[in-house]
Design a protein around this nucleic acid. Sequence first.
DNA 1: GCCGCGACTTGACAGCGTTAGGTTAACGTT
DNA 2: AACGTTAACCTAACGCTGTCAAGTCGCGGC
Lengths: 220, 220
Amino acid sequence: MSAPSHTQPPGSAARRERQKEATRSRILDAARELFVANGVEATTMRAIAARIDYTPTAIYHHFRDKEALIEELCYVDFRALATALIRIGEIADPLERIRRMGMAYADFGFDNKSQYQFMFMTQTSHMPKDPARVEKNNPEQDAYGFLVLTVEEGLKKGLFRPEFQDEHQLAQLLWSGLHGLISLYIAKADDPWITWRDPRTTVRLAIDVMIRGTRRQDLA
Amino acid sequence: MSAPSHTQPPGSAARRERQKEATRSRILDAARELFVANGVEATTMRAIAARIDYTPTAIYHHFRDKEALIEELCYVDFRALATALIRIGEIADPLERIRRMGMAYADFGFDNKSQYQFMFMTQTSHMPKDPARVEKNNPEQDAYGFLVLTVEEGLKKGLFRPEFQDEHQLAQLLWSGLHGLISLYIAKADDPWITWRDPRTTVRLAIDVMIRGTRRQDLA
DNA sequence: GCCGCGACTTGACAGCGTTAGGTTAACGTT
DNA sequence: AACGTTAACCTAACGCTGTCAAGTCGCGGC
């Protein structure tokens, strides 16, 4: 009777919704912890449920299946990556922007190995299936689109060698140069077969190599 | 009675061994086909066995477990890759050799997507655990070691910019530049989120970029 | 002619992701 | 205040997986 007015009492449906959102959040947190600790494949629904004292089936009231759970975490990380990159967008020089984006991208990968893995290293797309969720080319949400835009700007300013005309091709070249380092390091860091050098130093070198290899010679 | 001599009759133990090797081979063939068609994860021991009209458990008489089966296929492919690269070893100029090795490596990846995937894109090392099987730095067996040797030769000849001193670091940089393209394409080729350009063309561009970015300027 | 060995099968185990159906507590309505 | 509805959660189970202990059976060697 305190202040129900004509709408629902504040402590009813709204509170219930908040409760639901809370357990949903707890599931996501537990899943993330276990995914990071033991890998996605090795983490079972039962283990996630046990960690928050629920029955496995309870998870299915909040997520369609395990894939949807992964997808949700992916979505969050994807926005986090885009947010980390967007700050760099203010840098005027496209080449310097690319350099800084590359470093930020690599930092994200090395700091979030597990997420990086199921974002970019698995065959099934863990990108949100709903096209309305992540808007292509909106730099706030689509880091790849942001890179393409930056490359496009560089192309327009004539910063690149003449054989580079296609912004997608050049963006894919730059991106995959870093992705190779990050993903190989994530997958094979413990493999004694390769003598690894400090990956962040190699990333810095790789970015320089790629910029030197793509920019127009006369304005080096 | 034809020609048993003092050793065992030829149609006995030897034949039996050949028989065993034959079914072992059939298992490997079936596994490879299914792995390529449906992916490693989606391929079950039961499916492999059914394809050659055996019971699942029969496989375990020839391979310790599924992992060992994968590992064996990996080992074969690994030698195939090294063999494909070794022919290029005759090219005198290290830089040109690197270029050709890169193309051959990319061809291998695009032509053997499934194998490439579980050789280089999975966390658990599918490299043969037995260190005696693949000899490190023997170019006939270790493609990475072969690349390192080539890079080392280029370093000794002073072909690279002065900031590159470490043959491992430079080899990892070159390798991962291509690995990024190949692995991203394998994992995300069907992802509508990225507008893919022809990967082989991009590979050629990437190799040029990396060589141009690492070689000494004055002998361009 | 018997023995042993080894390739192969039978039948089962524990664990996985997932689901149909039941329980229970809180809600809006009367 | 008692009702029926809703939805969060649980119980029990399904079909599937990789794997194994124990059995079958036929061939080679003594």
